[in-house]
Design a protein around this nucleic acid. Structure first.
Lengths: 243, 243
DNA sequence: CAGGTTATGGCACTGAGTGCCATATGGCAA
DNA sequence: TTGCCATATGGCACTCAGTGCCATAACCTG
């Protein structure tokens, strides 16, 4: 077992050892053993992403990934249930942050305000917190995911899972039974649908400016509200009235 | 090569030969060779679904599927790109119908009306047209998909693809550039998000009545509009005011 | 019935993912 | 420090999905 004990052999940038970011986050893990595991995990993700970006997802084998980190093939599968998960690791972390951000907002806040603020907070965190990776890394990962059907599918499933959690949280705050009242699920699903549309367009456009993304999302959301206001009818559909 | 030349060995119901349904649809395929291929394909789907329902998706191997139809393993992969696709074959057909239904609606109809009507039409077709399978088969397939992460992921990706097509169609009718104007994508995504929420609840509830599904979808959509009307704020969130 | 086209079958191979057991390593108590 | 237990790792061997390649069978055309 080598796993790069602090030397600079894994990936340029993002030294695995420096887990001491700003937010205490969820990790904590003060055990000695725990930290080692955390480092291995990070090294695997770094190596995998590096290879995916360079050679493409399909062309990269797990053997190559574990070779880069000097870990056995078997060990890889003890850290990740599959090849997809290592590619989506960063994404998953963002999603966890999102759920946490929603839960952390004041409980008396209206649902949609909560969703918008939480989303903005997390996007901000991505741009600042080096632990989540820069906005550039985020964009590259998005492209990687969107360019591969398998990853795209897995990503959508994760998003669905996240939506469930967020809906549950919204339901809890509103004092509503999520199985009998569909409003939390509807609100969250629609909100995320809009965010996804905005993000797709943003990714495609490639203007990787976090500020621009926030603007795009807000614009998309306004467009959506506007559409509903007109009863989703013909009115308001003149070619250049929106966006 | 056996593939059940018209005898009753594949699956009770849905006689493969009778392609003469109501709608001329897309198939047509009058060649002799073509019909044979169509039959093999259908036989594969039938056998696969039968096995999936009985033993579960993961526990079913492709070898078992091809053995049931008496076709070589290699041939299977000439009909379907993978194991997932055969499980989602019926679903895909429904999605194609949906896109077709949207395109077939009068062009001067407001977008959301088009979406609602098209959806209702297709759900109706599922309930009536034996070629698409009964509502019961549809429900069983939904359960199969939702019960398996891999299938769920693939299903969501397909849904996304369908959304793209529908958005493109809506944009075309509205005389709008879908790359510059996000409204078509937003409308379609939100609509489908609501439908998905309603359908999830319907599937979970297990009251497999197509009428009930239509009602659930309408209710969900109304709830959504209602939420927007209140500005998605606290008002209108009293526990029992909706659904 | 001859000729080309196309579908099929039969390998052999790669790569993902898993179960099992032996072994190494970190943590902990005496 | 030493010894012990828990756990992390490595190393098979195996199943199964998916693909490339080529020979052969089925079809269809003239």
């Amino acid at each position: 077992m080598i796993v790069d004990q602090g030397s600079a052999r894994t990936t340029p940038g993002t030294t695995p050892g420096a887990t001491s970011g700003t937010a205490p986050g969820a990790g904590g893990a003060t055990g000695l053993r725990e930290r080692k595991k955390e480092r291995t995990r990070e090294a695997l993700v770094d190596a995998a992403l590096e290879l995916f970006w360079r050679k493409g997802y399909d062309a990269t084998t797990i053997d190559e990934i574990v070779a880069a980190v000097d870990v056995s093939r078997r060990t890889f599968f003890r850290y990740f249930p599959g090849k997809e998960e290592v590619a989506l690791a960063r994404s998953s972390e963002v999603e966890r942050s999102l759920v946490a951000a929603v839960a952390a907002r004041p409980a008396d806040e209206p649902p949609v305000v909560t969703l918008r603020r939480a989303t903005a907070e997390v996007m901000d965190a991505i741009a600042r917190d080096p632990k989540l990776g820069s906005t550039e890394a985020w964009l590259r990962t998005r492209r990687l995911i969107e360019g591969n059907p398998t990853l795209m599918a897995a990503s959508l499933r994760h998003a669905m899972e996240t939506e469930r959690l967020m809906a549950a949280e919204i339901a809890r705050r509103q004092g509503v039974d999520p199985h009998r009242d569909l409003r939390p699920a509807i609100t969250v699903s629609c909100f995320n649908a809009v965010v996804r549309v905005a993000m797709d367009e943003w990714t495609e456009r490639g203007a990787y400016d976090p500020e621009d993304l926030a603007v795009t999302i807000d614009a998309a959301w306004s467009a959506m509200s506007g559409l509903v206001d007109t009863g989703w009818l013909g009115a308001g559909w003149e070619p250049d009235s929106g966006r």
